[in-house]
């Protein structure tokens, strides 16, 4: 067949399909702002659940925050937790249903402020589930207030002149912190703003679920540094660029702990 004879209509047919939104994402329109990384993060988790053939055995926990409605979009059994308590719910489920695949999906305020105790102790006990941590350095749902991960000098509605660390404290690198705990098995920091990063993050989530499935004896923790273009008051593309320039230097991407061993960054 000659190239010039091929039309778009010829290509658009089931046998040529290479990418389609997974059925494990419902058809509901996502409640997220344009360009928000939550949608991508949701989708790749569901793609992994589908590809690993564990739809019937996976239970997810939604947090309080922008992704409180994650259960509306992820087409699997889900529970919705009180603010910060997702790791406790996950502990309750995993301890009583050890063969189920459990993950929590939490933002920075949920995981690293109000839920710090639940996060640290689930990690330290070595609970065998996955925590997906979305870090966009701001409270998105309540309107862009300062988060535990807001960068020094970064503006938010409760640090309108920029985060003054002397007054407001320092941003918390909770991912590095949990990597220090003997109970974590796999700790990594990824992003979903480019195709390459999405692919890497998906591999990380797959690794995390595989570790859980094989009962590798420890908590799997995947941080996704993400954007909040509404909270940061930028266009989606500008927000992604700002994230690369400002968030990544403070929250560098890459594996922090692999197979229970800290990765040597030297």
């Amino acid at each position: 067949m000659k190239e010039e004879n091929i039309t778009t209509t010829d290509i658009i047919s089931d046998e040529n399909l290479v990418y389609k939104k997974t059925d494990l994402m419902t058809d509901k329109t996502l409640s997220y702002c344009p360009g928000c990384g939550h949608g991508t993060a949701h989708r790749i988790i569901m793609e992994v659940v589908e590809e690993m053939d564990m739809t019937e055995d996976t239970i997810g926990i939604a947090p309080v925050g922008c992704s409180v409605l994650a259960y509306e979009f992820m087409n699997i059994d889900m529970q919705q937790a009180a603010h910060g308590r997702a790791p406790a719910l996950a502990t309750g489920i995993k301890r009583t249903w050890p063969d189920k695949m459990i993950f929590t999906y939490q933002g920075d305020g949920d995981l690293a402020a109000i839920g710090t105790a639940e996060t640290i102790h689930a990690c330290n006990r070595g609970e065998n589930f996955l925590i997906v941590f979305i870090n966009n350095g701001i409270y998105g749902m309540t309107g862009g207030q300062m988060a535990p991960t807001t960068l020094p000098g970064m503006k938010s509605s409760t640090s309108p002149y920029g985060r003054d660390v002397k007054l407001m404290g320092n941003p918390l690198k909770i991912t590095e912190l949990v990597a220090e705990l003997p109970g974590t098995y796999y700790v990594t920091r990824q992003a979903v703003h480019t195709p390459a990063n999405v692919r890497k993050t998906k591999r990380a989530i797959k690794t995390a679920f595989k570790n859980q499935m094989e009962n590798k004896g420890g908590l799997n923790f995947v941080e996704i540094v993400s954007n909040c273009n509404s909270g940061w008051k930028m266009s989606p593309v500008d927000a992604n660029n700002w994230m690369v320039e400002n968030m990544f230097p403070f929250y560098p991407l890459g594996d922090i702990k692999l197979d229970g061993e800290k990765v040597n960054k030297e």
Partner: peptide
Amino acid sequence: AIVCPDGVITVY
């Protein structure tokens, strides 16, 4: 399609 947050793109 991979970076589309809303999963609105299908690829052939």
